[in-house]
């Protein structure tokens, strides 16, 4: 009984710890600029939808009437969507064959190759990003979708390869051998047996990869101009010389957060199914 209540208390504390910042940002998005900066902070205040109207619809309340202003958040949101989907698709396309080879075949310096791939994630992005900036300018990849999709492979490919490698390794080699003996070519075996078996794992890995790409900030900030800027670095646009538009920034942040939150909720179930892979042992 006591243990149970202690457990519940611990869970409540952790929930407060993790959810409070999100809660605060949500409050902020409904505050007037004056309420946002008031100290001590207000928990009870007059709700306003001005920030939301401004960010989503481009309507600004001047005191007497609404005026149309420029808002780009939805465009940035779309950019993020294109970049994250494209990066994930490319990472899966390139990563699955690599992962399969690492799981199944012996080849020269295999483990070195696998480790080198992983080591791309060790170096701080800040070290390479300025070099990349000039390279991207020259190759005309600066401020292009394809440029962003390529650079995100540094983040996603090692992840996809290492995750999928372990899933492929879990499929008993004899199950694949049986398919070959049963009259299927390598590709027939891969598409009829191997892929269906790792499908949940591919789904889970794709979702996590998508979130990685979506949340990425630095490359998006340095390697894009206004055209393909993703939503995360675009939030900085609310900071200017004269003022910081806290309320609008909070609103944009909430919008930017939605896909990650939704996908996290979705994969919870899927990742568990994908990770508890035991059913494969036929």
């Amino acid at each position: 009984m006591l243990r149970k209540s202690l457990r519940i208390m611990a869970i409540v504390l952790i929930m407060i710890w993790t959810l409070f910042p999100i809660y605060w940002v949500i409050l902020m998005s409904f505050k007037t600029p004056i309420d946002v900066t008031t100290y001590p902070p207000k928990f009870i205040f007059k709700l306003t939808l001005d920030n939301w109207a401004n960010v989503l619809l481009g309507k600004e309340w001047t005191g007497t009437h609404y005026e149309t202003v420029k808002t780009d958040i939805l465009r940035y949101f779309k950019n993020s969507l294109i970049i994250a989907s494209g990066s994930t698709a490319l990472a899966i396309f390139l990563g699955l064959p690599a992962a399969y080879s690492l799981a199944r075949y012996k080849f020269f310096r295999k483990e070195d190759f696998a480790f080198t791939l992983l080591s791309f994630r060790f170096a701080p992005a800040l070290v390479v990003v300025f070099g990349l900036y000039s390279v991207y300018q020259r190759l005309r990849l600066y401020d292009t979708y394809i440029g962003m999709i390529i650079i995100h492979q540094i983040l996603l490919l090692p992840f996809v390869v290492w995750m999928m490698r372990s899933y492929f390794a879990m499929i008993p080699a004899e199950v694949e051998q049986a398919a070959r003996v049963d009259g299927y070519s390598w590709w027939g075996m891969f598409s009829k047996i191997t892929l269906p078996l790792v499908k949940p794992a591919v789904a889970a890995t794709s979702v996590v990869a998508f979130i990685y790409s979506w949340n990425e900030f630095l490359y998006g900030y340095v390697l894009t101009g206004d055209k393909v800027r993703p939503v995360t670095p675009s939030l900085l646009g609310f900071i200017s010389y004269e003022r910081v538009l806290w309320g609008q920034m909070a609103t944009a942040a909430i919008v930017a957060m939605i896909p990650s939150v939704l996908l996290s909720l979705f994969i919870q179930r899927y990742v568990v199914a994908g990770l508890s892979f035991g059913a494969v042992r036929g």
């Binding site: 008993p172 199950v175 059913a279 036929g282």
Partner: peptide, 10 residues
């Protein structure tokens, strides 16, 4: 016939 059966789990 494989000793480990090697059935297709799905």
């Amino acid at each position: 016939v494989f000793e480990t059966y090697a059935l297709y789990p799905h």
